[in-house]
Computed example of a mutant assay.
Amino acid sequence: MKTSPYGAIAFRPDARRLTVSAPSGELTVWDTSDPSRPRPAGRLRTGRGIVAAAWNPSATDLLATVSNDGSGALWRLRDDSAPEGVARWAALPDRPRHVGWVAGGSWVFSMTGTGRTSVWDVGSGACVGRADLTGGRPVVGAHYRGSEVVAVTDSGWARLWRPGRRPSEWVRLTDRPVSACTWSSTMLVVGDLDGQAACFDAEFRPVHTLRVARERPRALACADDGRLVASAGDNQAVAVGRDGSVQWETYLRPPGAQSITIAGDLVALSAGRPRPTLLALATGAELAGGRS
């Protein structure tokens, strides 16, 4: 997930709830069960402002957030009731940029933009471990593989860490600077400054390379089955098939999009507006625009 002034964008796996952050530090929850008319469904705030959020992959009513003061929080967001704060912890000593789930949703991790990471057990509230994954190298994306946290740097390297062990050896993904990256259930995709995207399987073996933009992609998202990669450049969203063919191109109102995510058959984009833009994954047609 990318972060920006309106950057903590996260789609629930069933595509019925979406969270979008605001410069005020509030996180707005949107009901997207009717994609043509998304409705605000609650607002969250904690720890001097929320900067990133992630839905639990197995317990779909649980949302993890991290805030400017380094704290993490867990929220229960049922469709038929107001958001409920479940837990809060002092995740990191400085500002995090990434949050996600590990071990099938039993643990939650927080990571700074320079790779300092902590992992917490949701059930007990105990800290599972802390590590410096990148030695200060800037992190473009953070995700998980089973019980391992994965960090991808802007210089094209990846590193894994399983709490309780030392971080793994570095994995070289690309010799090009990385501007954006994304994961699906089957694939890791890293985009470079020239609009090329290198795709890897779960073992970080190269699968193929695609052109996803004419220039540096601001953000990337991948459909869960890996068939489609979408990139948001300046005022355009482009979807590309696994064979490299362009599936669709959609013009976006300025300032375009800094964040993009996919769930189900929907694409959600966020830029300099509090309201998200929703597109149909199959066609790129705009279902709900980003007008304030």
Rank of each mutant, 00 (worst) to 15 (best):
G7R: 03
A8P: 03
P13S: 04
P23S: 12
G25H: 00
L27R: 00
V29Q: 03
R37Q: 11
A41T: 02
A41H: 11
I50A: 00
I50V: 06
A53Q: 01
P57E: 11
A64Q: 00
S67G: 02
S67D: 03
D69P: 03
S71Y: 04
S71C: 07
S71T: 12
R76E: 10
D94R: 04
V99W: 08
G100E: 05
A103T: 09
G105T: 06
G115D: 09
V139W: 02
G141M: 10
G141F: 11
Y144M: 12
R145K: 12
T153Q: 08
W157S: 11
R159C: 13
L160D: 03
V171Q: 13
R172W: 11
V178A: 11
V178I: 13
L193F: 07
C199F: 14
F200W: 00
D201W: 02
A202M: 03
R205T: 12
E215M: 12
R218Q: 04
R218K: 15
A223P: 04
D224T: 10
D234H: 13
A239T: 14
G244S: 12
G256A: 04
Q258E: 15
S259T: 13
L266A: 10
L279G: 05
L281M: 02
E286T: 13
E286V: 14
R291H: 09
